[in-house]
Amino acid sequence: MPVEFPVPARGAALPALTGAGPGEFTEAWLANRRLSAHTRDAYRRDVAGWLAWCAARELNPLRANFLDVNSYGRQLEDPTARGGRPLSPATVARKLSALSSWYDFLVKLRAVDANPVSGADRPHVDRDHSATVGLTPEEVDALLAAADADTGPAAARNRAAVALLADLGLRVGELVSLDVTDLGAERGHRSVRFVGKGGKPRRRALTPSTTYAVDAYLAERAAAQGVTVPELTGPLLVATTGTRLDRHSVFRLVRRLARAAGLPAWAQLSPHSLRHAFATTARAEGVPLEDVQDAMGHADPRTTRRYDRDRHNLDRDPAYVIWAARARRRG
């Protein structure tokens, strides 16, 4: 018979977890970490996938060892086991990383003696490479132009969404989580506040073009509801039904506009492509790495460097700077 685990009780205190099943542990683990709603859902799915794999094999996950984790990882990488859809090494590594964090939590609670993922064989991930399809500055301009030319009842909202992605390099989860009340003004800047990855509170400045797009959208939305802009509440970006715009709609929007703009790789683009373009363009324009890192909310500058698609361009070789400085001294 498959192993069955009780449904987690939300809000349960950690001391009450003695003798609890993996489901309760998962909710307690997530509640113990500062995570965005999107990351929380992703981690929950990652652990649920492992628990389902264990249940199918009548394996108690609290008694699993590194050999079991290795078998699970191999299945994730095997296209025949997934209906011809293998996961990338980065995705498998992410799933195992979430699982390792879950087991670390269980070790601290003394629910297990050791973390079985720590001894497992994780796939190698090239930290200097990203599978996301990037965009050149000219392609971003074309995408924004397509948004400006867009028509229909959601055109103003679409322009605001794409402007926020392009000018701020937001993650799609950060974009769709924005509320009207997150907009503000600080020391002469129009700004937006939000919770970034890892539950970190963030704030960014809005460019004049993004401010114009957002204000135009809110003015149109307020007029349609028969209220003033200050009276608007709820999500910043809403669907035609009035509910919060979801990430899947933003994916479809980016690809539709990219296709309208005539971008060759439109079918492979995603909102994250605009995030990569933000980092690449900022670095190419001379923005210091640490400023780009702060703007993107990266804990590690190596992550920011990976987003910079132009980092290996020979035009940026520091040898030229050294040579030019030497030439000035001799001049």
Rank of each mutant, 00 (worst) to 15 (best):
M1F: 07
M1N: 11
M1C: 06
V3F: 08
F5G: 05
R10W: 13
A12M: 12
A12N: 04
L14T: 15
A16T: 13
P22Y: 07
G23P: 03
G23A: 07
N32E: 15
R34A: 15
H38T: 14
T39L: 06
R45M: 09
D46V: 06
G49E: 05
E58S: 13
L59T: 02
R63T: 12
A64E: 05
L67T: 11
T80A: 15
R82E: 08
R82T: 11
P86H: 06
L87A: 08
A93W: 08
R94H: 04
K95S: 08
S100K: 01
Y103T: 03
F105H: 10
L106D: 04
L109T: 04
L109R: 12
A111F: 07
A114Q: 14
N115W: 01
N115Q: 04
V117I: 02
S118G: 13
A120W: 01
A120Y: 07
D121E: 14
D128V: 09
H129Q: 13
T132P: 04
V140S: 00
D141Q: 12
L144K: 05
D150I: 03
D150T: 12
A155I: 06
A155R: 07
A161P: 03
V162Y: 07
A163S: 15
A166I: 08
L170F: 09
G173A: 09
L175P: 05
L175A: 08
D179G: 12
T181A: 15
G188Y: 01
H189C: 10
S191T: 15
F194S: 03
V195T: 15
R202G: 00
R203F: 07
R204M: 11
A205C: 11
L206K: 00
S209I: 11
T211K: 08
Y212E: 13
A219E: 12
A222H: 03
Q225Y: 09
V227G: 03
L232F: 09
T233R: 15
L237V: 05
V238S: 11
T240Q: 14
G242E: 01
R244Q: 11
D246E: 08
H248M: 15
L253W: 06
R255E: 02
R255L: 08
R256M: 06
A258Y: 06
P264E: 09
P271D: 02
S273T: 02
A279D: 05
R283V: 14
A284K: 11
A284V: 10
G286L: 04
P288S: 10
P288H: 03
L289Q: 06
D291H: 15
P301M: 00
D317L: 11
A319F: 13
V321C: 12
W323Y: 10
A324E: 14
A325G: 12
R330F: 10
